[in-house]
Design a protein around this nucleic acid. Structure first.
Length: 447
DNA sequence: TCTGGGGTCCTAGGACCC
DNA sequence: TCTGGGGTCCTAGGACCC
């Protein structure tokens, strides 16, 4: 029968691959420093607020997991080696990894630095089945990058991802059991998983949604089957309800989408010691703006929306954003808008995180065309091009002033008052610590 | 022990237009 | 004069992914 275990799927039976590099950041560190081999190693922040970004299997034997606070990981594993991240190295390995996947098929959708979906339907005519493609890819990753990986091969993204997870080595307190490396999620396996998996194994179901579902008595994927979607929607929203219903039937409408373009870029920092004053935060925005502007220019895009996020010590967050009718990609402009937005954020507690994000990204080239059309006919020689460019800068500056005025209008005199002292360019008078620094509205109105 | 930094997507309410 | 419904954009917040 078709269910005979020796039978391998054809491309049309299992067109989706999910490739996942094992312990990626930590593995790159081991390649760069072989003396770390065999030791329990994590990449992550070493400070009191650091978390584990990646852990070797040796570290996982002690219960160490990514996302865990480094302090807790150290407690679980006293010999733990904590290495700071070297993201340039990870980017480089990630590029080489993606190139190997793209060598299989152009339809590749990366997920973070260390994972990718691939749709191999285009390889239908070219012989080997998807399992052979997956094994070959895994071998190339091992030979050319010296990294280990796992590949799930399935009908849909959901099962391919679950498959790669199951294909990985398993770690228990007594040792590490190698996984199969490549796993085909056959129709039989799909059916079995739909019967046995908990709801939080599904894509998009995290702690919050799992808790909501548990309150409804829904703990396994099988419990979701045949549920009234409208009733479910009132609890988890229409989008989530529809998605859960589809998953429970074993369906996943998501396609593998190549060439996704980023919709936002940002930078944030959790402070080792929470910030106590607005002046400190204004100073931090300078660095944030430099980072974000650098990425925008590197990618050749301009942002039309600027967002500032503040997270307080109690971990609640507030955000303020402003959409501009012109694009920015320079640190100065970004910083000015961000500072005006920050003025409207109440500082009622110490601040553990400050973030600056740029959204509504558009190609810079397109934006320039639009602006130059505004000011003049298309420039056809250097002189008129220069003139147009100069006028564009003028109009951007005017736009920036308008934007800041708009923020002041929306958020009131507080924003107005301190926006004015932006001209002092971060050289702000020392402030008293304690209550005065945090009194809502009172500190800036005196400026 | 006490939770990073890079992102995406969804929701809800209000403004505004037709 | 009052009322409405749909569509779209913007803003704020939250959940989730790696």
């Amino acid at each position: 029968m078709s269910s005979s275990p020796g039978r391998e799927p054809r491309v049309d039976d299992a067109p989706v691959l999910h490739v996942d590099l094992d312990a990626f950041f930590a593995s790159v560190e081991l390649l760069d420093d072989p003396t770390l081999r065999g030791r329990p190693v994590v990449v992550g922040g070493a400070g009191t607020r650091g978390v584990v970004a990646s852990a070797t299997y040796e570290a996982r034997r002690f219960g160490v997991r990514s996302g865990m606070a480094t302090a807790l990981a150290r407690r679980a594993c006293p010999d733990l080696v904590v290495v700071p991240g070297h993201f340039d190295r990870y980017e480089e390995y990630s590029r080489r990894f993606r190139a190997l996947v793209v060598d299989l098929t152009p339809v590749v959708e990366p997920l973070g630095l260390d994972e990718a979906f691939a749709d191999v339907r285009g390889r239908r005519r070219l012989a080997p089945g998807p399992l052979e493609l997956a094994r070959g890819l895994r071998q190339r990753i091992r030979d050319e990058l010296r990294l280990e990986s796992a590949v799930g091969v399935a009908r849909t993204k959901l099962f391919a991802k679950l498959g790669s997870k199951r294909a990985k080595p398993r770690v228990g307190p007594h040792g590490i059991t190698p996984g199969p490396g490549v796993l085909w999620v056959s129709p039989q396996l799909e059916a079995e998983w739909l019967e046995t998996l908990p709801v939080d194994a599904l894509w998009g179901v995290g702690p919050s949604t799992a808790a909501k579902l548990a309150r409804l008595g829904l703990r396994h994927v099988r419990d979701l089957r045949g549920l009234d979607p409208h009733a479910l929607a009132t609890k988890v929203g229409p989008a989530m309800a529809g998605q859960l219903a589809a998953y429970a039937r074993g369906e996943d409408p998501r396609e593998v989408v190549a060439d996704r373009v980023a919709k936002s870029v940002g930078h944030d920092e959790t402070f080792a010691v929470s910030r106590q004053s607005r002046a400190e935060l204004h100073g931090d925005l300078r660095g944030h703006a430099e980072v974000v502007a650098g990425v925008l220019r590197e990618r050749g895009v301009v942002a039309h929306t600027v967002t500032v996020v503040v997270r307080y010590d109690d971990r609640t967050s507030v955000s303020r954003s402003q959409t501009l009718d012109f694009g920015i990609d320079d640190a100065g402009g970004l910083r000015q808008v961000a500072r005006a937005l920050l003025e409207s954020v109440p500082l009622t507690q110490a601040v553990r995180l400050l973030g600056l994000y740029a959204g509504s990204l558009r190609p810079r080239a397109g934006s320039q065309v639009q602006l130059s059309l505004d000011v003049d006919a298309a420039p056809d020689d250097v002189l008129s091009a220069a003139a147009a460019s100069s006028r564009q800068h003028q109009s951007d500056r005017a736009g920036l002033r308008d934007a800041i005025d708009e923020i002041r209008r929306r958020f009131g005199r507080t924003a107005l008052g301190t926006a004015a002292d932006l001209r002092t360019s971060g050289v702000e008078p020392p402030r008293q610590r304690g209550r005065t620094a945090f009194g809502p509205d009172q500190e800036s109105s005196g400026d």
